[in-house]
Design a protein around this nucleic acid. Structure first.
Lengths: 230, 230, 230, 230
DNA sequence: GATGAATGAGGTTTCATTCAT
DNA sequence: AATGAATGAAACCTCATTCAT
């Protein structure tokens, strides 16, 4: 009757070798299964039964680890959000201040950011956030603090340094960062049907290039202006 | 025991006199209440009981008008989406080709579009779309066809005409339209916490100005370049 | 699958001839079944499932008639208590002021009161009251107001009139009423094991006689004193 | 995480130092906590978790000491009943055969008995007995054998001796004992709302006096009759 | 067309109890 | 002897949906 958590992404590998009645990382298996089910069914429709089945544990085990469905939801969301954040932050790090070709650098970081933005978990997270923001008004800050906000700030830092280095010409780095991210991600939502239709790497590359072009047409320092023409 | 639909926004006035011919707009009262409840509770959590109560009708009456909950949801969504679309399309119309000051024109249309984007129903619609896109994969096209897509196309038309008129300098109007809308709406989501925190008119104006500035820095025809500097 | 409410005392007779899907007195059937089950299982252990089964209705039907388990309990208790009260009050009425033989009159009313006190429902009610008084502190007043308290007062009235008529000699009728009822019912609890073991009519008669004897030894007016000797 | 059983009345002091020999009175701590929780919540609603928490032990420890919930309940009940019985029996002992003032003696023993009867544990015990008599039909004999029955018999013995000594005039000491106890305790239930509302010492004294008055009016030997008039 | 009453299925949560340590 | 972790069973309650009026 026990099904190892093959469905939940990360659960299978570790709970595979559980002997008689494993208890090693049931908590993680539950979190993984929970996010998978929440993402698939939405908060209300996701049943603890389903999550338990997918995690390969009994229903009350979930209640031994988490207070209730709401708490489980919060934990599953933040756990996934944290995982996503570190990747996104790493992507921002690709934009160094002393770069040979600014355009290439922006396309590169744009592609890296888009890859994070388009990841399945990332879309699932965003859909759930939209879906449950009214039921969990604190969720926005809970996930945003360590996520998008931080990313935006870090990116603004890089833009400021590029400006000081004479590679860009802009006055408000925070606003510019927001705008670059908007140019990058804005068109994706529509084209990928909120992440439910494939948006392949080629499309991502093209979107990154388009965002970069427009951004640099607006903000590249004068001498390199010509280079940023499409 | 019957409560006239005072809660659902537009329902009260008309369903007041149920006696004579009051049954013609029960359907509308149901749709209004349905959207209000769906927006507040989400699809799964919204109960037909609640909708019936808020619409001031009995539960079976809803089933006389709509096949089932799913059908009611689709109808409520499309009805609201249609209402929103006509406003948005009207907003696009404000950008005419023969305009004295390009910058002012973009700020103006940007503000009008943002007002549509930030309307309560608009955010509710967007949140529900995000929330239920996996359960109703066709919903995206159902709402998008007459909504955002059309808007984007219409806006691209105007950009093309402005380009022909020598006011803008761009090669791909569709992409440019997408990008302007991205610059316009992108920063709003974060700042308004997905529409759950106030985003007042002053902020909307500032966002429209920022989007316009960047857009025109990138795409304004040469002679007006100086004017778009911040 | 539908079982007519054969178990709950009064339900069987009426819901017998229910046609396709009866709805005549489901409410009463539910109340009867509820009291029967609560009496048998106690509040916590009594499940709505059991009550529904015993009433011959579906579970949600119960929730259509009563808010929740607690409300159902209160209604079932008060309904039964009311039924019991009218009988007890009628019993008190047997003690008229102008009576030939005081002793016979007291034995008579004593037997009538004991019959009420020893009825199955009466004991069930008392056990449930004891059992749930901490969970439902208001239950005591809810049931007592129309029940025992009223009985005690009515009985005190009769004692007062008998005193005025020169048949009794007592100063505090309320206290005397309490004491007669105590003499009457006090020994029953122990002997009938709180109503769970038979306490037949002969025993009831003997108890009524003993209570009467002692009561009249204490309170009979002087001349009849000899007659009350056992 | 372990909380010493500070909540259960008598458990705190001893289970403080669990280290050395603390396990000898874990059993007692469990029994105390069990009775406290059963009294507060009722049998069904009392959870082993709650008892374990209140006793400051882990759940399985309870199962090491007691077979199951039912067995724990029986043990907790008898333990408390035994404690109550010795006090009540001691109270009866206050009624000696060679007493100066019969009235004072009865008031004295009446007050002592009432104090036992009104103790918190005593009421809790009685409520639980009423509550669970149908689920545990043997409970009545289990608790009664060493309790009320014995008390009644002992009291009857004293009444017999007082009769032989010419202080009382009664024919059936057992019945008289029952009746005195009925006069004593009967009025209390109603006035104290089954022990849930305060019934202070003054009220206890008055009740004992009233019971004594009536009892002696009925059974005092002739010469002292006058003295027992109120 | 509109409604009051009814229901099968399923949701979250709790509980007594048991392994393995 | 004592415990942390796990579980099958079952409880209360809700919901979408349907009859019969």
């Amino acid at each position: 009757m026990r099904r190892p958590g093959v469905t939940a992404a990360g659960a299978a590998g570790r709970s595979g070798a559980v002997g008689a009645r494993g208890r090693i990382d049931k908590r993680q298996a539950i979190l993984d299964a929970a996010f998978a089910v929440f993402a698939r069914e939405g908060y209300s429709q996701a049943s603890i039964d389903l999550i338990a089945g997918e995690a390969g544990v009994a229903k009350p085990t979930i209640y031994n680890h988490f207070e209730n469905k709401e708490s489980l939801f919060r934990h599953a969301m933040t756990a996934t959000a944290d995982r996503a954040s570190v990747k996104t932050i790493a992507a921002v790090g690709r934009l160094s201040a002393d770069v040979a070709d600014v355009r290439l650098a922006f396309v590169d970081v744009g592609r890296a950011l888009l890859a994070c933005y388009c990841a399945d978990d990332s879309w699932a997270l965003r859909r759930l956030l939209y879906a449950e923001i009214t039921r969990f008004p604190d969720l926005f800050d809970l996930l945003g603090a360590s996520g998008p906000e931080q990313v935006s700030e870090l990116f603004a830092d890089r833009l400021a340094r590029l400006t000081l280095a004479g590679r860009l010409q802009l006055s408000d780095p925070v606003e510019a960062a927001e705008q670059f991210l908007a140019l990058l991600t804005g068109p994706v939502a529509g084209r990928s049907a909120l992440g439910t239709r494939p948006f392949d790497q080629a499309q991502q590359r093209r979107t990154a290039e388009a965002a970069t072009s427009t951004f640099l047409r607006a903000f590249a320092a004068a001498p390199t202006d010509a280079a940023t023409q499409r």
